[in-house]
Simulated assay, not measured.
Amino acid sequence: MAVSKQHEYYEKRLEELLIEMPYFVEKYVDDKLDIRSPLTLFNYVRDFKEFFEWLMAEQIVECDSIKSFPPESLETLSLNDANNYFKHLSRKKYKVSQKDGETKQIDVKTVNRKKSSLRSLFKYLTVEAEIATGKPYFERNVMAKIPIKKVSETFNERSKKITEKIFVDDMDIHFLEFVQNDYEYLLSPAQKRYFRRDKERDFAILSLFLGSGVRVNELSNLRLKDVDFTNKEISVIRKGGKKDTVSVTPSSLDVLASYLDVRKNIYKAGDGDNEYVFVKVYNGKTAPLTNRAIENIVYKYTKAFDKRMSPHKLRHTYATNLAEQTGGDIPLIMNQLGHTNSDISLLYINTTRKKQRMAAEKMDQRRSRKSR
Rank of each mutant, 00 (worst) to 15 (best):
S65R: 12
R197I: 09
T320P: 01
R113N: 11
Y267E: 08
E15D: 15
F155H: 11
L260N: 10
D228S: 13
T133A: 10
D81I: 08
P288G: 11
L187P: 05
G101W: 01
S97L: 04
L222A: 04
T317Q: 10
T230P: 00
E16S: 10
E128G: 05
N274G: 04
I60D: 04
A257I: 01
S220I: 13
A360T: 07
K135Y: 03
L314V: 12
L260R: 09
R91I: 01
N221P: 03
E139A: 14
I294P: 01
V61M: 07
K242R: 13
P288W: 06
F69L: 06
I166K: 05
S4K: 11
L79W: 06
I205F: 06
E275C: 06
F51P: 06
D100Y: 05
R91D: 14
K135P: 01
F51G: 11
E157K: 10
E58Q: 13
F167Q: 08
E184R: 10
Y267I: 05
I173G: 01
V236A: 14
F48G: 10
E200Q: 15
V29D: 07
N296D: 08
R369F: 12
D226F: 03
L121I: 04
G270F: 06
G241Y: 04
A360M: 12
K95A: 10
T133H: 01
Y183R: 14
D228P: 08
K307Q: 00
F48W: 09
R119E: 02
E15F: 04
Q180N: 11
